[in-house]
């Protein structure tokens, strides 16, 4: 398996990468390459030019700021799960540890993963549940896209063609709030058949805020408002969680289907995994 001919260059700064991208309409950005290179080997994707952004120093950092943990887009999955600032964002650690395998986690990047927007990838659900802000940069400057607006469909995002994801801002966990990620793996690829990220704020034993996000279930990761709203104002008990989780993946939406999981089974798993992720977040 060999990719078609392709030119390669390494950008030394975000600015250079954006300029190269603008000058070469058939170019693709290359970070860890763990989605792009396999697709190129199968000749499903044959860009004319690869712009390697993995070594741009300004894209690889993890910073603890006043309101948020800021992650540079070229940070690898391994960088994230071993970073001390992220310890409080349990869902990030739990999800990161379940991505691919050791080797993939050493190369694959957070920015690359979300820009690729595989409907079964783990990060999108977590970023949704944690209300991440995604900073992108293009020829016209920078803008911030909330995660809830970023994942727009099957392998598609709100990124414009000349834009690069530069930073992911994760609001710091509020007092009394916690998160968890639970995943039912496709046994061969180890992508999510159903991945559920839950973030819950409990005040005085009562749930005051909740996010429940899924990956693998539909053509893009999504926040499940039905489950979240059923939790608000309830005490954080297993019974209440189970009742709320039974609303998962209902309503008018596309449900994925493959030879590992039919639509009915996937829907069922969504309810089970919502329960498990919520229970995890509530420490139950």
């Amino acid at each position: 398996m060999i990719p078609s001919s392709v030119d390669y260059t390494r950008a030394s700064s975000v600015g250079e990468a954006i300029r190269l991208l603008a000058e070469n309409p058939d170019a693709k950005l290359l970070a860890g390459g763990h989605s792009l290179i396999p697709a190129m080997k199968l000749r499903l994707n044959s860009p004319a030019l690869l712009i390697d952004i993995a070594r741009i120093a300004e894209l690889r950092f993890i910073e603890d700021t006043e309101n948020a943990i800021v992650i540079g887009a070229a940070s690898t999955h391994a960088d994230i799960i071993t970073n001390q600032y992220l310890k409080g964002l349990t869902a990030m650690i739990e999800a990161g540890e379940l991505i691919g395998d050791t080797q993939v986690r050493n190369m694959g990047t957070l920015g690359g993963s979300i820009a690729h927007a595989d409907p079964s990838a783990d990060w999108p659900a977590v970023l949704l549940a944690l209300e991440a802000q995604i900073k992108v940069q293009g020829a016209d400057g920078e803008r911030i896209i909330p995660a809830a607006e970023f994942f727009t469909g099957f392998f598609s995002t709100a990124l414009d063609s000349g834009e690069i994801v530069t930073e992911i801002h994760l609001p710091k966990a509020a007092v009394g709030s916690a998160s968890a990620y639970r995943k039912f793996m496709q046994p061969a690829s180890r992508f999510a058949i159903v991945g559920c990220a839950a973030s819950v704020t409990v005040e005085g034993g009562v749930i005051s805020a909740a996010n429940v996000a899924f990956t693998g279930v539909s053509d893009a990761a999504f926040l499940d408002e039905g489950v979240a709203s059923a939790l608000i104002g309830k005490s954080a008990t297993l019974e209440n969680i189970e009742a709320a989780a039974s609303a998962a993946a209902e309503g008018d939406m596309h449900i994925n289907e493959d030879h590992f999981a039919s639509q009915a089974y996937r829907k069922h798993l969504a309810k089970v995994y919502a329960k498990r992720a919520l229970a995890g977040a509530c420490g139950l």
Binding site: Y8, R10, L30, H34, L42, A78, T102, M107, S189
Partner: peptide
């Protein structure tokens, strides 16, 4: 394999295990 799945191509790049079938030689420059 063709899909970064089997791990027979595992090497260390700057001290970390990676799958050398999913990396261009050019990416390893330096």
């Amino acid at each position: 394999c063709d899909t970064s799945s089997c791990g027979t191509c595992t090497i260390h790049l700057d001290g970390k295990a990676i799958k050398s079938c999913s990396l261009l030689a050019a990416q390893a420059d330096g």
